[in-house]
Every structure is written in structure tokens, then in C-alpha cells.
């Protein structure tokens, strides 16, 4: 194999699949998504993978690259290849659909379970809510709001692996941004949703989510915020059920 070639092991098939090796020419500024696209366009058109924007906005191209979940469109081969080799697999902690495509339904269903929906309290007839950019709540929300839902944190989370019901870092991060939204009317129900046995208290603060989040967010911080917020349930004895 030439020096300017990458040896790429790519997961093929479903959960009981196996790795298949391809040789891909090395290019300057090559991303992992470029590598996968090359394989599908030039070497094997049956390879299934998912992508859309190619610029780190849509959150659809995350895969396991050399053992760690990453957004492939903005991961340069230079940074992750070891001795000219790459191993690319679908995201962990999710069922495999085929090849590099993971089934993200459960991941997103958990956003709904964590009450990740905005609950409006005003109508179009009311005045706009004024939220000061420098207020503590707005800054807490800002810190977590840029999540693109790529699933990297969820795939990296040990607690998700141990407890299939655990809501996961992304859903809890979303819940925390809404918990800091002064306009939202669903706070009590949300805190109860995230304080169950599969919620924020299950987090072990291992911080893999924060380490690997491509947007450099800290779901760990959001989860600890939720832990503090749910203290009210204990202190006030609110049951909510």
C-alpha cells in the first residue's frame, strides 16, 4: 500500500456486521466525511451513511472514528488517523440501521421525555417578553443553546451504556436551557421529568460528553444545574404525580 494512502476499516451491515477495509488516497485538509464519501462514490456505492450540511451545522454525520464519537465533516484526518489508519463505525449506544447509519429515534424520543419542548405562556396578543442578555438565566441558557443534536455526547456517555433508560446528556442539556427560559410555563413538569431514576441524578460526572462535544458545550454543567434545581422537589416535598 502506498504511503499516501489511508487504510480505512469501515463497519458494514447491521449489529452483527463486520469491518471492511478500503484504501483511500490521502489528500490535504481531508476530513473523515471526505473519506467516507470517497468510498461511497468511488469504491462501493452500497455504503450507507448520513450527512447533509458538511459544515458542522446539521448534526447528522456523527460516527465513531478510531473509537471515539465525532462529527465527521469537521474532523480532519490529520487529527485522528493513527499510522495512516482509520476505523469508522456507526455511533455507539444506538441501534445500527446499516453500515454507518445509527437509529437516532430513541435519542430524540428522550428529548421529548425530558420535556424538551417549549411551553408557551403568552399569545400573539401579548407584549414581547423582555429577557436581559446579561441576566443569569439568559447566560445559563446561552451556554447550552448551541446544541445541534448530533448525538456525540449520547454515544460517548457511559451511563447511557449502563442504563438504557437514562435520558442522556443532550436531552438533559436541552431541559436545562428551557429551565432557564423565563417565558416557559412547563417548569414543574420538566423538573419532575428529569429527576426520575433515569434522569439527572444518574449522571456520574465522568464528563465524556463535555470532552467530546463538537460544539464545546458542557452538558455536565447543565446536568449539575438540573440537580440543583430539582432540590426544590425535595425541600418543598412536591410530588407532582
Amino acid at each position: 500500500m502506498e504511503v499516501n494512502e489511508l487504510r480505512v476499516n469501515v463497519w458494514r451491515g447491521g449489529a452483527d456486521g463486520r469491518f471492511q477495509q478500503f484504501a483511500v488516497p490521502r489528500r490535504a485538509s481531508q476530513t473523515v466525511l471526505d473519506v467516507v464519501t470517497y468510498i461511497q462514490r468511488r469504491l462501493d456505492p452500497t455504503l450507507a451513511y448520513r450527512f447533509a450540511c458538511r459544515v458542522g451545522m446539521c448534526g447528522s454525520c456523527a460516527m465513531t472514528v478510531n473509537g471515539a464519537p465525532r462529527w465527521t465533516c469537521r474532523t480532519h484526518v490529520d487529527r485522528v488517523a493513527r499510522d495512516g489508519a482509520l476505523e469508522i463505525a456507526p455511533l455507539a449506544n444506538m441501534p445500527v440501521v446499516r453500515d454507518l447509519v445509527a437509529d437516532m429515534r430513541e435519542f430524540f424520543d428522550k428529548w421529548a421525555k425530558a420535556r424538551g419542548q417549549f411551553t408557551p405562556t403568552r399569545t400573539r396578543a401579548d407584549e414581547f417578553a423582555v429577557v436581559k442578555p446579561a441576566s443569569r438565566q439568559r447566560m445559563e441558557a446561552d451556554a447550552g443553546i448551541e446544541c445541534i443534536g448530533c448525538g456525540v455526547c449520547y454515544a460517548a456517555c457511559d451511563v447511557v451504556k449502563w442504563n438504557r433508560d437514562y435520558l442522556g446528556p443532550a436531552a438533559l442539556n436541552r431541559a436545562w436551557t428551557l429551565a432557564n427560559d423565563a417565558r416557559d410555563g412547563g417548569q414543574k413538569a420538566r423538573l419532575h421529568a428529569v429527576a426520575g431514576d433515569a434522569g439527572c441524578h444518574s449522571c456520574h460526572t465522568t464528563m465524556s460528553c463535555t470532552e467530546l462535544c463538537p460544539k464545546k458545550l458542557s452538558p455536565t454543567r447543565s446536568i449539575s444545574g438540573l440537580k440543583r434545581a430539582t432540590l426544590a422537589i425535595v425541600l418543598r416535598g412536591e410530588d407532582g404525580e
Binding site: 429527576a195 426520575g196 430539582t230 422537589i233 425535595v234 410530588d239 407532582g240
Partner: peptide, 12 residues
């Protein structure tokens, strides 16, 4: 009960 119980155990 679950939410309150888990939160309580966490506090303890």
C-alpha cells in the same frame, strides 16, 4: 414518587 425519591437519595 420516583422523582422525589431519587432527588432525596442524591441529597443524602
Amino acid at each position: 414518587m420516583s422523582a422525589r425519591r431519587e432527588a432525596r437519595l442524591w441529597v443524602v
